[in-house]
Nucleic acid binder design. Structure first.
Length: 274
DNA sequence: CGGCATGTTTCGCC
DNA sequence: AGGCGAAACATGCC
């Protein structure tokens, strides 16, 4: 993913669904709970939200197999994109080509498809929502427990971040990737934020000064909207192209370094990141 | 063919 | 108990 920025782009693309009613659908048993279509058919999209990398589609009037007192009238469909999940809404794909994934849009990789009334696409056969995922690491959930997720990356504050990492000695890179700490940052965004903040991915969280915490949070809050408008997580200084060849750092000309940190590839500049 | 990939979960070890 | 790293998962691409 599909990181928080891509989820936000897809969230925006889903706004036209609000007010429309789910008529029918199809889901791969490996991607979604069994009988999920029966659970949501007849429901109306009531809102589109996002928390971290999860796209949340609120449904009003979804029937329940075994109704109980206290059930809320609103249920929530959660879309988790894994590594290669992508979304096509009314035939429109906000992200045509996903980095590190296939350039093709093969219907054989469709895992979750919904049709709605009214149908707003040009072609009547075009589904309202199509979740396509070659690598099958994406997941669709209904009323998933999201309590383990931390503050959304767009809403991060120095106060909340300082509170969350207090007493933790973990290296910054894996810390930023921890969705329980900050929700929405993925491998590319984490490297990008550290590059802009001038902080080494190896730095222990417990060694950050209050000023460095403030600066890192300011970087996150200021760079995310810029990259969102540019088209997502791949539009930064450490784009996939840069990561592939490790050219001189665009800030200071020093050679970029690539290594594995916390099991994930990390690219950073030893010259200006300390 | 080998290696790598925007992610999450689980297991085992401190 | 809790934090952490490695492995597993699944599949396409270079």
């Amino acid at each position: 993913m599909p990181e928080g920025l891509e989820a936000e782009m897809w969230r925006r693309a889903c706004e036209p669904l609000v007010g429309r009613t789910i008529v029918d659908g199809w889901s791969d048993v490996r991607a979604a709970p069994p009988r999920i279509i029966d659970d949501i058919a007849g429901a109306t999209f009531a809102g589109v939200r996002r928390l971290g990398k999860v796209l949340l589609l609120d449904l009003a009037g979804a029937p329940r197999a075994e109704p109980r007192d206290g059930d809320l009238d609103v249920r929530t469909l959660g879309l988790h994109f894994g590594m290669t999940g992508r979304l096509v809404v009314d035939g429109f794909a906000p992200i045509e080509r996903l980095a590190y994934a296939s350039a093709r849009d093969d219907r054989a990789w469709d895992r979750f498809v919904l049709s709605t009334s009214p149908n707003d696409s040009r072609e009547p056969s075009t589904p309202a929502l199509r979740f396509n995922d070659p690598r099958r690491l994406g997941k669709i959930t209904l009323d998933a427990d999201l309590s383990a997720l931390g503050v959304d990356c767009f809403a991060l504050t120095a106060g909340s971040f300082a509170e969350t990492i207090r007493g933790r000695r973990r290296a910054l890179k894996p810390l930023l990737l921890d969705q329980g700490v900050v929700a929405g940052l993925g491998n590319l965004l984490a490297d990008e934020m550290l590059w802009w903040a001038g902080l080494s991915p190896h730095r222990g969280a417990d060694t950050l000064s209050p000023g460095e915490i403030e600066h890192l949070v300011t970087v996150v809050r200021s760079r995310l909207p810029v990259m969102l408008e540019r088209g997502g997580s791949t539009t930064g200084s450490l784009s996939p192209e840069v990561r592939a060849v490790c050219p001189p750092c665009s800030r200071d000309g020093a050679p970029l370094r690539r290594e594995t940190i916390g099991g994930r590839s990390a690219v950073w500049c030893p010259e200006h990141q300390h």
